[in-house]
Lab assay of single mutants.
Amino acid sequence: GLTEEQKQEIREAFDLFDTDGSGTIDAKELKVAMRALGFEPKKEEIKKMISEIDKDGSGTIDFEEFLTMMTA
């Protein structure tokens, strides 16, 4: 499992990506986040990433899903 410290770091990354503070990361926010990390993702790639992570089919990534992605 994760230490509380690791969870906190992932939470901070999540909050950075969640620019509108909605508690979820949408495609637009993910794209901005990827760019910040030096990637140039295409729209299809973003969609694919979200569909792989987005277990509940909401079209957005919540913290639990993000946590799973970061620790996979």
Rank of each mutant, 00 (worst) to 15 (best):
S51A: 14
M70F: 11
D20I: 03
I50A: 06
K28D: 08
K7P: 01
F66Y: 02
G57K: 08
E64T: 08
K48S: 06
D15Y: 08
K48A: 14
A36V: 13
T71A: 11
S51Q: 10
T24I: 04
P41A: 09
V32Q: 14
R11G: 02
A72C: 14
T24K: 07
P41H: 09
F39Y: 10
D26W: 07
E4F: 08
T71K: 07
E52I: 11
L67S: 02
V32N: 15
F14A: 00
D26R: 08
G59C: 09
E44A: 06
T60W: 09
A27R: 08
M70S: 01
I53N: 07
E12W: 14
I53C: 11
Q6C: 13
E44G: 10
K7W: 12
Q6M: 05
R11W: 07
I53M: 08
K48H: 11
I46M: 08
E64D: 09
G38F: 02
T3I: 04
I61C: 02
E65M: 14
E40A: 06
F66A: 01
F39S: 02
T68S: 11
M69R: 03
A13G: 03
I50Y: 07
Q8G: 04
G23P: 02
K42H: 11
E9I: 13
F14K: 00
T68Y: 10
L16F: 09
F66E: 00
P41S: 06
M34Y: 05
A36Q: 11
I25L: 11
I53Q: 04
E4Y: 08
D62P: 03
T71H: 06
G23C: 09
T19A: 07
E64V: 06
M34H: 00
R35G: 10
A72R: 11
K7R: 10
I53W: 13
I61V: 05
G1W: 14
I50S: 02
K42M: 12
A33E: 00
G1C: 14
E44Q: 06
G57I: 07
T19Q: 07
D54A: 12
A27M: 15
D54F: 12
P41R: 05
I50G: 01
D54M: 12
K31T: 14
E40P: 03
K43D: 15
E5C: 14
S58N: 09
V32Y: 15
L67G: 00
K31A: 15
M69F: 13
F39P: 01
E9S: 13
R35Q: 15
G21R: 10
F17I: 10
T19I: 13
A36P: 02
T71E: 14
E40Y: 12
E65R: 14
D26V: 04
L16Y: 10
E65D: 08
K47Y: 05
I25W: 04
K48V: 10
L30T: 01
E64P: 04
A13H: 05
M49D: 02
L2I: 07
L30P: 00
I25D: 00
T24A: 03
E5K: 09
T24V: 06
Q6G: 02
E12M: 06
F63K: 01
G21P: 00
E45S: 08
K7M: 10
G57P: 05
K55C: 09
K55M: 09
T24P: 01
P41N: 05
F39T: 02
D62L: 09
A27T: 13
I50M: 13
I61G: 00
E12Q: 09
S22P: 01
I46H: 04
T68R: 11
P41C: 15
M49F: 10
L30M: 06
D56F: 09
R35M: 14
V32E: 15
I50E: 04
A27S: 09
S22F: 02
E12L: 14
D56G: 07
S58E: 06
G21N: 07
M49Q: 04
R35L: 15
A36F: 11
E29G: 13
D26L: 08
L37Y: 04
L16H: 10
A36I: 12
L16P: 00
K42G: 13
M49T: 02
F63C: 02
K43S: 15
K43F: 13
V32P: 08
K42Y: 07
F17L: 09
A13R: 04
S58C: 10
K28T: 08
K48N: 08
E5F: 11
F66M: 01
A72E: 08
F17S: 08
T19K: 12
T3M: 03
K31I: 15
S51G: 11
G38E: 02
E40W: 13
E9N: 13
K48Q: 12
T60R: 14
I10W: 07
D18H: 03
E65F: 11
T19W: 11
E44S: 10
I10R: 02
T68L: 14
T19Y: 14
T3A: 04
R11Q: 05
Q8S: 08
D20K: 05
K47E: 15
T3R: 06
T71N: 04
A13M: 12
L2E: 03
I25V: 03
D26T: 13
A13F: 10
A72Y: 13
L30A: 04
A33P: 01
S58F: 07
K47R: 11
K55V: 06
M49A: 04
G38W: 02
